[in-house]
Each structure stands twice: as C-alpha cells, then as structure tokens.
Simulated scan of single mutants.
Amino acid sequence: MDERVKTARLSIISNSSLIIMKLIVGVITGSVSILSEAIHSTMDLAASIISFFSVRISSKPADKEHPYGHGKFEDVSGVLESILIFTASIFIIIEASKRLLSGKEIGSSTLGFLIMFLSAIINFFVSKKLYKVAEKNDSIALKADALHLRTDVYSSLGVGVGLFLIWITNLHFLDPLVAIFIALFILKEAFNLLKTAFDPLVDVKLSDDEISIITNAISKYSSGYCGFHKLRTRKSGNKRYVDLHLVFPGNMHMKRAHDICNNIEAEMSRSLENTEVMIHLESCDNDCINCGLPNKSKCKNR
C-alpha cells in the first residue's frame, strides 16, 4: 500500500478516537471549549477521510481520460478541507458567543484539561508523522491533514490552559473566550491552506526559488544554444510541469540539439523531483545563423 495512504489511514483512526473521548468529557463537564474541540476533531476526521481517498486516487498512473495524471485530486482535497475548517470555526464562534452571553458554568475542569493535554500529545505525534510523509512525497492533501492536526494541538493546549485557569480562578467566562480565540486562530490557518491548495487548480506558476533552479539548469548548457523564451511552469499534486522554447543555430545537427535538450531535462529532474519537461526546439533566424557560438548576442529570439 502507498505510504501516503497508510499515513492518511492513521489520521482517521486517531481522529475517531479523539472525537469519542472529547464528546464524552464535553457532555460530562458541559464545557463549550471541549465541545468545540470535538467539533474541530470531527472536521479533522472528515478532512482525513477526504485526504485518504484523494491520495489513493492521485497515486493512480495517467490514463486515457487523465493524460496528465490524477494529481489535482489532492489540490481539490485541500480546498475542500479548508472549507470544512472555515465552517467549523464559524460554528464554534457562534456557540461560544451564546455561552458567553448566558454565563453558564462548566462542570469538572480538572478532567477537561487532562483530556485536552492528552489530545495535544496524541495529535502532535500523528501530525509530525503526517508532515514527514507529506514532505517526502510533496503531498498537499497530507500537508492539509497535518495542518488540521497541528492546529488541533495548539487549540487543545489552549483549551487545556483555559480550563486549568478556571480550576484555579473559578472564572468560567474564560471557557467560551478561549473557544473564540481558538476559532479565530483556525480561521487564519484555513485561509493559508486554501491559498496553497487553490493555486495549483488555476495553474499558478512555481515558486521563485523553483524557477531559479529551473533557469540554472537551463543555463548550465548555455554554450550549446542561442537562448530560451516562453518559459512556463505549473503544478498538479506533487508533479511539476515545465515547458519552454529553446533556440539553436540554424546549422546545428538535430541530434546534437536533441542531446542538449535531454541533458537539460535530466538536470531539472535531478534538481526538482517529480518534474516533467517539454522543450520546443526553434531555429535561429538569418541574423544570427551562427549564434552558438561567438555571435550569440545578435540572436533576436533570446
């Protein structure tokens, strides 16, 4: 089984266990912050399920209907997961505001903060595993899932600290205030995730650092061609796509030009994993037919 699929399944198991635990403690204590954390974990579970199926689909090879592969399923997954986080955060803010206005007190805060700290520890190790596999496989779906769990770590710690302060001070209004603060924090993270996942769907170019690596790979063999232009980049899942026009002297043998293109493609693949390159060969015009060479500066196609 694909490593990404195994890791996504681990996230489903951990989130399911935490939801049950948080719901039981939330009902017993009547803490809106713990119940908000249960809702947060429910959204995490939904995200984990989406992530699980998206990485399974995206790992399929290209076929007749999807000649560029299935990588964008991961990007769609990231967008859906961010929408789920937005929805959960708004719900938490509404419920916490109602509790703040009502002034209702919670039950045992001791049990509450112990469960929250336990939840933070579990999610820390699971999210660490998810991030490791996501970075290794450049998986946006697993990165999104890891982000969910990492925010859950922070929010669980926040709730735990809030309940601990209630236990010390008996100021029960801290419970809904902490819940609102957590929801605002999650909203910020959701916005960042949405941008990261949405950009590949509209074919935003690769990062400046990645483009710099690409141009360096092209320039490494600059002694054999006149210039390049129409460089375009995009990403689909963990796949990077690069295409460009490479200009050669009009009298260069096709095999030599083709060998240079192969060297450039190999250099890019070594520098950036999961990169597919398409190079269009162009012949230099009459004003620079001998460029390549000493008169490269005269090439109008550069």
Rank of each mutant, 00 (worst) to 15 (best):
M21F: 15
L114E: 06
I211W: 05
I24T: 14
R270G: 14
I13P: 01
E65C: 11
F198N: 04
L157K: 02
L100E: 05
R232K: 12
L18R: 00
F198A: 12
K128S: 12
N286P: 14
E189A: 06
K220V: 02
E265A: 14
V204I: 14
M43D: 06
K300T: 14
G250F: 14
S17P: 02
Y225Q: 01
K239V: 09
L35A: 10
W167N: 13
L244V: 11
K230V: 13
A134M: 07
L244A: 11
I218T: 03
F185V: 08
S223R: 03
I279A: 00
S109I: 10
L147V: 08
T275G: 02
G237H: 03
R270I: 09
L206T: 09
F53R: 01
L246T: 04
I115Y: 08
N295K: 10
I115L: 15
I13D: 00
D2Y: 03
C284V: 07
R234E: 05
G224T: 04
I93Q: 08
R56W: 13
W167S: 14
K143M: 03
G71M: 07
Y221G: 01
Y131M: 11
K300M: 10
D259R: 08
F117S: 06
A183S: 12
F86I: 13
S222Y: 13
G292N: 11
K143A: 04
E210V: 12
L244T: 12
G78E: 05
V159F: 07
S283F: 12
E105R: 10
S97K: 06
